[in-house]
């Protein structure tokens, strides 16, 4: 596919700049370390091609999630990316690795990205992966870009796998323990616990939803909301350790949390930096880690554990030898 004029302009800008930061809608711009003094580039917007029979969509990275979702809805399809802020761009969601609350049922974001077009550090337009739903041609470059936080290149276009929108979709509150629900239900789309309340999202055939919710104490409910606070973070932990972590988090004064069972992601927010520090201690004590996503500007964005850091540094250096992409955002693997 021929890159657009806008992509050629980005490529030219990247080729000559010493520091570059890709910007989406800025909805998650606080994730990671602060990027200083870099040329801002914005990927073009727009749906390139919807292929409902192949269940794929090619979309420019600057397209807002809401626009992608509306285009797919016309064909009764969707792509289950994080929808917590519909103004976020597709490229931004991919760069920040946000899978959304439906990850338990639909898998992580990285499993939906089939192809990625990006501007390299040298200002070339390159492509990884391919447009088909199944592909092992060459190295899995698309997965590498998911969650790369703008450190490898400027994502300009992606091809995503789509799926049929479910016939029925409903949240339920339940008194059954979250840890029990996973075995009790066949394929829940989400099991979460927020503010002491357990909720499940069931999707699929309406009769199946009724049958599964008749057998226990389920009550229809609104979708759970993300924690609110000045200082925010996302914990990733072995899902088998979640009950233990939540016991520790509940003991932290003023900490609001939303935990994804079976996945191991816990979104936390608080009004005090000390609350986040305590949450990080609890997570790291159980083998997990915490990514600061907002506020708490003096807090290390990643914390104490950074696995395979030397290899990560080498990979980043290989794609960005002068360290021009998003300098400061991931200090541990900084290459200059």
């Amino acid at each position: 596919m021929t890159p657009t004029t806008a992509v050629a302009e980005i490529a030219a800008a990247v080729a000559t700049a010493t520091a570059v930061v890709p910007i989406g809608a800025g909805t998650h711009a606080e994730i990671g370390g602060r990027v200083l003094e870099a040329t801002e580039v914005r990927a073009p917007s727009g749906i390139v091609d919807v292929q409902p029979f192949d269940m794929t969509v090619s979309v420019r990275a600057g397209t807002p999630y809401a626009e992608l979702d509306a285009a797919l809805a016309e064909h009764g399809q969707e792509c289950p990316l994080d929808a917590s802020d519909a103004s976020a761009t597709v490229g931004g969601i991919i760069a920040t690795g946000l899978s959304g609350l439906r990850r338990l049922g639909h898998g992580p974001l990285r499993d939906h990205v089939l192809e990625v077009e990006f501007v390299t550090a040298e200002g070339k337009v390159a492509r990884g992966g391919g447009p088909t739903v199944k592909n092992v041609t060459g190295y899995d470059v698309p997965r590498l870009f998911v969650g790369s936080l703008g450190t490898l290149g400027v994502i300009t276009r992606v091809t995503l796998r789509t799926r049929p929108r479910p016939a029925a979709s409903e949240w339920f509150e339940t008194a059954t323990a979250a840890s029990v629900l996973r075995g009790a239900l066949f394929a829940p789309t989400a099991i979460v616990r927020a503010r002491g309340v357990t909720a499940v999202l069931l999707e699929g055939n309406a009769a199946d939803l009724r049958a599964e919710t008749d057998t226990a104490s389920f009550a229809p409910s609104a979708a759970p909301t993300h924690p609110v606070g000045v200082h925010r973070a996302r914990i990733a932990i072995d899902p088998a350790q979640l009950d233990g972590l939540l016991t520790a988090l509940d003991a932290i004064d003023g900490l609001d949390s939303l935990a994804e069972y079976g996945v191991g992601t816990v979104h936390v927010a608080t009004e005090t930096v000390s609350g986040l520090v305590a949450a990080r201690g609890a997570a790291e004590g159980l083998g997990g880690w915490m990514l600061r996503t907002g506020g708490a500007t003096d807090l290390d964005p990643f914390g104490g554990t950074f696995p395979a850091v030397e290899l990560q540094r080498r990979v980043r250096h290989a794609l960005d030898p002068t360290g021009k992409f998003s300098p400061g955002r991931v200090p541990a693997t900084e290459t200059r």
Partner: peptide, 11 residues
Amino acid sequence: GLAPDAPGLDL
């Protein structure tokens, strides 16, 4: 790892 996402790149 067993946690859903590891810090940094998905190696």
